[in-house]
Design a protein around this nucleic acid. Structure first.
Lengths: 248, 248
DNA sequence: CGGACAATTGATCTACCTCAAAATTGGTGG
DNA sequence: CCACCAATTTTGAGGTAGATCAATTGTCCG
């Protein structure tokens, strides 16, 4: 079950977790030794569905994923976007029934890790458990920040905020720099994430371009005026909890 | 530090956690032995503020609390309401800087428990840690559900949904029955929680009353037509994760 | 080259907001 | 027990950010 390429896959996880925590050699080895199964998924493919009771969780190695829930009449709310190093359904370790769906945005490479192994890991090494717990808490902090946007900010501020957030998340794991990053979701996706119609998203994007704040084409975002974007969106990165060495 | 009334205070916590998990005698005793300091707080008083780095967390014994963040120009977003048995700032155990504020709605009795003691508890009894972790995951699930409301539901649906949620939360800890429950927040609070103006909240409340769905006065809510409320708000209690015996 | 999907544009509509004032409620001190 | 104050709820009128509907254009890719 644990091949050489398999260990390599969990390096993505260790690297992300070690950006904010410190592990002993034994703990690091325990994470790398987690059994897992790697698969390549097509764009727009559901990974775990609303109502499922999964017995494994999903570590993203490459590509983008997102979480969403559909209501009646085609309404959809997107909760989050995920990139390499994320375990978007880590919550299923303790919440047995999925209350939303996890799917790919782009083609994606993911590693599935059995819940059983994750539980054994967190029971034997509670400090590793604390770091994973922390990860789900940052997740929740991001939900809160999105609530602020959807509930109390203009469409302009919301979109600018999302762009700042995605850039910083990508930069923090080495997938972006120089205020340039990949951004593979469609305008419909952005609307469903921020509670806007695709038409309005399109118009606000034109406004952002018109003011020279960003460039966005062929799935690449460039932020030309970081400070103005920060200000327009009332962005404060505290909620991303990027602090160094914050292990439990 | 651990008086008789002190142990009694943590009974509130044990009772809540045992509604979904099972503890050994030793684990139960460890929770009851947590040191804590009980205080009575006035209505509308901040408990922990945005930007603080607290060294303890707060167990609600009686009364209501809520979490919020303020933006410029008096805009405020409320993230959640909390009742007896909740530890609304449990996240501060692993996220050192508060990214929002916790405050009382009503007069409230709360017990403060040092982070240090909570950490020792979760390190020594990882399965207790798992139950606390789970609690923060339900918290996040509720945030997601609110995002759906704010992003994709009408004001009518949002308010009806909030009422169904609060009733079930209260009922689950024995603070409500017969579709009747306390509801001490103001219409301004409801608006700030759901991304609405107080004026519009008022008009929707009249509509709910006019249709005979609810009664709401002197801080008491009665839901007369549960099924219609469920339907109007597209309420599905799965996200509250009330399952029996779900320990990690 | 064709087909599907994504982005864009135009025109119209409405759910909800803002501002401002009045009525009601609940608590408090005399 | 009443008078009064502050907070909350309610009502009215007018305004707007963003929705909806429907068509057109652009882009990617087999």
């Amino acid at each position: 079950m644990t091949s050489a390429s398999d260990i390599h896959s969990k390096t993505v996880l260790v690297r992300k977790l070690e950006s904010i925590a410190t592990f002993s050699d034994e703990e690091r080895q325990a994470i790398l030794s987690l059994p897992s199964q790697t698969r390549v998924l097509k764009p727009g493919q559901d990974i775990v569905r609303d109502g499922d009771t999964p017995s494994q969780c999903c570590l993203i190695l490459d590509g983008w994923a997102y979480r969403y829930k559909v209501l009646g009449e085609g309404r959809r709310q997107i909760f989050s976007f995920h990139i390499a190093g994320d375990i978007p359904d880590l919550q299923s370790l303790h919440l047995h029934t999925m209350d939303h769906t996890l799917a790919t945005v782009t083609e994606a490479t993911v590693a599935f890790i059995p819940h059983q192994s994750m539980r054994e890991l967190t029971m034997r090494y509670p400090s590793v458990g604390a770091v994973l717990w922390r990860d789900t808490l940052v997740d929740a902090a991001i939900f809160r920040e999105w609530m602020i946007g959807i509930g109390r900010k203009s469409a302009f501020g919301r979109i600018a905020h999302l762009f700042c957030e995605m850039y910083l998340k990508l930069e923090s794991v080495g997938l972006a720099s120089d205020h340039r990053c990949p951004l593979p979701m469609t305008q419909v996706d952005i609307g469903d994430a921020l509670g806007l119609s695709n038409v309005h998203v399109n118009r606000v994007l034109q406004e952002l371009r018109g003011k020279g704040l960003i460039t966005l084409r062929s799935n690449t975002l460039v932020i030309h005026a970081w400070d103005e974007m920060i200000q327009a969106s009332e962005f404060d990165p505290t909620y991303l909890h990027f602090e160094q060495r914050a292990a439990g």
